[in-house]
Amino acid sequence: MADKKLQFAIYWAASCGGCDVAILDVNEKILDIAAAADIRLWPVAMDFKYKDVEGWADGEIDVCLFNGAVRNSEQLHLARLLRRKCKVMVAFGACACFGGIPGLANLHDRKSIFEAVYGYTASTVNPEGTTPQPHLKVPEGELTLPVFFDDVYSLSQVIPVEYYVPGCPPTPDTIMTAVTAIVTGSLPPPGATVASDKSVCHDCKRKKSDKPTIKRFHRPFEIVPDPEQCLLEQGFTCMGSASRGGCGALCPAVNMPCRGCYGPMPGSLDPGADALAAMTSILAASDDATVAAETARLLDPLGTFYRFTLPVSVLGRAPKAS
């Protein structure tokens, strides 16, 4: 191991693996990363054992890119362990930054999730009603599984985090900006988000009116979008105006309304409230009946407006059944 090389750890918790793939999406620049850094842990790509990590000295690793939310006891253990072993902790991707899509599970709890997943979903065949048990005695000894939590946590709700690299997943440019800052020692002050401080709209090339209005809300499959005009003004639930930019507005460039994966704008009180206000306030209707009928076409406001951010929102979750 060359001593001067930066020591990196990359870990995944409650995530889909997309963030790990995104790191590979930097293509040949991955070689520059490999030249500048030793990757000491990367479960998705290489074989490591947790006991190797436990054997490292505290602070031995320079930077950890941690993707995924935290929702079970193994992820909690690794988050705390890596916090000790790493000098700089980076919440990497929307799940680590805000809870992400897994964070929508905060509308439920362990019991109701198990009832659905191991019980009544269409694809479940489980006549004995088996659910994961943290401990199981077998002739060979005891088997253990991580404990599934009632709540989904963003990384900073579990351990102190120095930097946030948002996105679902972070774009290659965002990743290279972050990695370059790390390698050249030009990181912003701790607490910073490595993305733009302006909204997605700022980077979006579509034509926007000074006084935008929406006549009717549409889901993406309902109409063919005009390729030039602002998607929000066409009635799509584009989250761009309530979402942090830095992604280069890639989705609206290809007719896909922004889903808000870079999270809320700096200074936001609540991500879902921002999006709700931005979208509904400009409806071209000024009487209760029309407003009610038109906004009812937005079928799932919570799932749309908090798609990536429920655990870090003001309400945070739904009440638990118990």
């Binding site: 947790y50 006891s73 193994e74 253990h77 253990t144 404990v147 709540d151």
Partner: peptide, 20 residues
Amino acid sequence: NWKVRAAVEPVSGLAEHHAG
């Protein structure tokens, strides 16, 4: 009673799982 009914389990009280 939102604070109680929608309370998130404090992380400090959660057990860790040490896998091999």
